[in-house]
Amino acid sequence: MQIFVKTLTGKTITLEVEPSDTIENVKAKIQDKEGIPPDQQRLIFAGKQLEDGRTLSDYNIQKESTLHLVLR
């Protein structure tokens, strides 16, 4: 499924993921596309910060959901 990741600069990254993918996994995909190390990434969905060990389905993230990427 496709999800979108919006950065603070207003750029939107499109990722191909599975509901069973972990947040860690998603961060690795963002690193592949954008070169941002996962340890600098914070992903936010519905106002919650997403934890590395959880999966997209844990957070009920469905196709075409938009996550927000904050760098630390």
Score class of each variant (00 low, 15 high):
residue 38 P to A: 08
residue 33 K to L: 10
residue 69 L to R: 01
residue 55 T to A: 06
residue 18 E to N: 12
residue 15 L to V: 06
residue 52 D to E: 03
residue 19 P to V: 09
residue 59 Y to D: 02
residue 48 K to G: 13
residue 7 T to M: 08
residue 33 K to N: 11
residue 56 L to I: 12
residue 2 Q to T: 08
residue 67 L to N: 01
residue 52 D to P: 04
residue 36 I to P: 15
residue 43 L to S: 00
residue 7 T to N: 12
residue 45 F to K: 03
residue 65 S to E: 15
residue 16 E to N: 09
residue 72 R to N: 15
residue 69 L to G: 01
residue 5 V to I: 11
residue 8 L to F: 08
residue 46 A to I: 11
residue 8 L to S: 07
residue 12 T to A: 14
residue 51 E to H: 05
residue 50 L to F: 02
residue 10 G to I: 06
residue 49 Q to V: 03
residue 11 K to E: 13
residue 5 V to S: 01
residue 24 E to C: 03
residue 13 I to N: 03
residue 55 T to S: 07
residue 17 V to Q: 04
residue 28 A to H: 14
residue 6 K to H: 07
residue 22 T to Q: 10
residue 22 T to M: 09
residue 1 M to I: 07
residue 36 I to V: 07
residue 31 Q to L: 05
residue 16 E to A: 08
residue 66 T to S: 06
residue 44 I to K: 03
residue 14 T to G: 03
residue 70 V to F: 11
residue 42 R to A: 13
residue 21 D to S: 10
residue 52 D to Y: 05
residue 38 P to H: 09
residue 51 E to R: 02
residue 10 G to A: 15
residue 11 K to S: 06
residue 62 Q to T: 13
residue 30 I to P: 00
residue 17 V to R: 00
residue 51 E to S: 03
residue 22 T to V: 12
residue 20 S to H: 08
residue 26 V to A: 06
residue 46 A to H: 03
residue 63 K to H: 10
residue 6 K to V: 08
residue 33 K to D: 09
residue 31 Q to C: 02
residue 58 D to M: 06
residue 60 N to F: 11
residue 26 V to I: 12
residue 14 T to Y: 14
residue 24 E to F: 06
residue 49 Q to N: 13
residue 21 D to A: 07
residue 36 I to M: 08
residue 43 L to C: 01
residue 3 I to P: 00
residue 59 Y to I: 03
residue 71 L to W: 13
residue 37 P to I: 12
residue 11 K to M: 13
residue 6 K to M: 12
residue 64 E to T: 04
residue 14 T to D: 10
residue 34 E to P: 02
residue 14 T to E: 08
residue 26 V to N: 00
residue 60 N to T: 11
residue 58 D to S: 04
residue 69 L to I: 15
residue 67 L to I: 03
residue 24 E to H: 12
residue 10 G to D: 12
residue 13 I to L: 12
residue 4 F to S: 09
residue 50 L to C: 02
residue 6 K to Q: 11
residue 52 D to T: 03
residue 52 D to C: 02
residue 27 K to V: 15
residue 5 V to F: 05
residue 43 L to V: 06
